[in-house]
Design a protein around this nucleic acid. Structure first.
Length: 416
RNA sequence: GUGGAUGUAGUUCAAUGGCAGAGCGCUGGAUUGUGGUUCCAGUCGUUGCGGGUUCGAGCCCCGUCAUCCACCCCA
């Protein structure tokens, strides 16, 4: 074996495809029910788009982006997330100037150069939804409801929703300063990571696992105390809508989205059974992003979820049963002289919409019967000397072992 | 990017530094044109890759690649 699959990637083999289709189909169905429409954007964009949207300081931009130059020296990047492309498209198509509301959903591969682990890949698949065009707290709740409905429809149970508000740019900045003021006296004692976080993203100090850093956390200021009136009201309203929709959640002030463009509502869906990679979906509001990317100032909210982790979570709950489809009938031709008739039946049945299997490598009748059994087909169609002479093949029910001769129309009636 | 564990047949796993094995799978057979169960036979190896130590390495050492776990981060 000379060629190997790139690190952090994997093949979705036919035996897994049925599960993937089921999950994807379910997402499409639920998204459509909420009025969201599919958008498909390129898997690469100008690198600058991601740098400006995710933020120069984010890990995604600093070390996880697959960048490349094309033949003319332009710098592109494989998309590390889905929102930037959707927003780019939204602006480019001048939807911001039309001023209406847009509801998008998307499904596709994302790329991050990160060290692989269970539930973490370099090429991974995300589904997501974006609502663009209103700051109404109902829409924060709507995208959450969409995600929750999707998971409920799949049968996933042990998942918890955690929400937070990171405020607008102003309260967010006020909070960062409050945090710095709080941690400043202990700066020398903090772990090296946290000393670094102190400057770049002080709120990251809150979920450090190092004992000393952790010990400072209970008394640290909370973002919720630094929200201005509008942001506070918005957050309260989001919770009211969730309550009224019967969605259970927990407020967790430590929830911080990794990308810089989030404002106000931030949320995550956690499945504890998954270990370290326990977030199966996350999202939030990004009111500043569209203007930041050159569009007309437009509020928006959305989320993205990871298919790999979702499938792992479903497996943990024993939800795995999406069997591949097996053939309806397996055609057995015995002897070279029956080949013409055999192929005629195979072709006709397929033209009439029947899933037919056949194995020309097996010559003996016995071997073909074994192949029919292995194919999991419900019926076998036997064409040998006798059938050739009478013009009526033998149909055998492989479950009951009963068989009888049929003509084509009878055969079709039984199979359909 | 950091730390740790692992890597042997298609697959799941064995093998004290001394002939690389087993179950499952796969192929064929068990008297005429009938599958599943059973029985018999056969097939399956660059021991991840590259070096080193040794009379001799799957086993010890170094490097490398990959997977898993924990960080980091996140989906």
């Amino acid at each position: 074996m000379n060629y190997k699959i790139p690190r952090g990637t994997y093949d979705i083999m036919p035996k897994d495809s049925a599960r993937w289709h089921h999950v994807i189909d379910t997402f499409r169905l639920v998204a459509q029910r909420f009025g969201y429409e599919e958008i498909t954007t390129p898997i690469f964009e100008m690198a600058a788009l991601f740098e400006r949207s995710s933020g120069e300081s984010s890990d995604v931009v600093q070390k996880e982006m697959y960048r490349f130059e094309d033949q003319k020296g332009r710098t592109f990047a494989l998309r590390p997330e889905g929102t930037a492309g959707v927003v780019r498209s939204y602006i480019e198509k001048s939807l911001d100037r039309l001023g209406g509301k847009s509801k998008f959903y998307y499904i596709g591969p994302m790329f991050r150069y990160d060290r692989p682990q269970a539930g973490r890949y370099r090429q991974f698949y995300q589904y997501g939804a974006e609502f663009i065009g209103s700051n109404h707290p109902y829409y924060d709740a709507e995208v959450i409801a969409l995600e929750m409905q999707f998971l409920a429809e799949l049968g996933l149970k042990n998942v918890s929703l955690e929400i937070n508000s990171v405020g607008c740019a102003q309260c967010s900045q006020a909070y960062d300063e409050a945090l710095r003021a709080y941690y400043q006296p202990h700066l020398e004692e903090l772990c090296p990571d946290c000393q670094n976080r102190f400057e770049i993203r002080p709120r990251r100090l809150l979920d450090c696992k190092v004992p000393f850093c952790k010990s400072l956390r209970p008394d640290a200021p909370s973002q919720l105390d630094y929200l201005d009136q509008d942001c506070k009201e918005h957050f309260t309203e989001v919770q009211n809508y969730l309550d009224q929709m019967g969605i259970v959640y927990q407020v967790n002030p430590a929830i911080v989205r990794g990308l810089d463009y989030y404002s106000n509502t931030a949320f995550e869906l956690i499945v504890d059974a998954l270990g370290a990679q326990n977030a199966i979906a996350g999202g939030g509001r990004y009111n500043g992003l569209i203007s930041q990317l050159g569009g007309k100032d437009t509020p928006a909210v959305g989320f993205a979820g990871g298919f790999e982790r979702l499938l792992l979570a479903l497996e943990k709950e024993g939800i795995t049963g999406y069997e591949p489809i097996s053939p309806t009938i397996f055609v057995i031709g015995i002897g070279a002289e029956t080949r013409l008739l055999t192929l005629e039946y195979i072709s006709k049945l397929r033209q009439d919409g029947i899933y037919v299997d056949y194995n020309p490598d097996k010559t003996s009748f016995k071997a073909q019967m074994k192949a029919a059994d292995a194919s999991q087909a419900r019926y076998a169609l036997i064409i040998g000397e006798d059938e050739l002479a009478s013009g009526r093949p033998t149909l055998k029910d492989l479950e009951s072992s009963k068989q009888h001769s049929v003509d084509y129309q009878q055969l079709l009636d039984i199979l359909k």
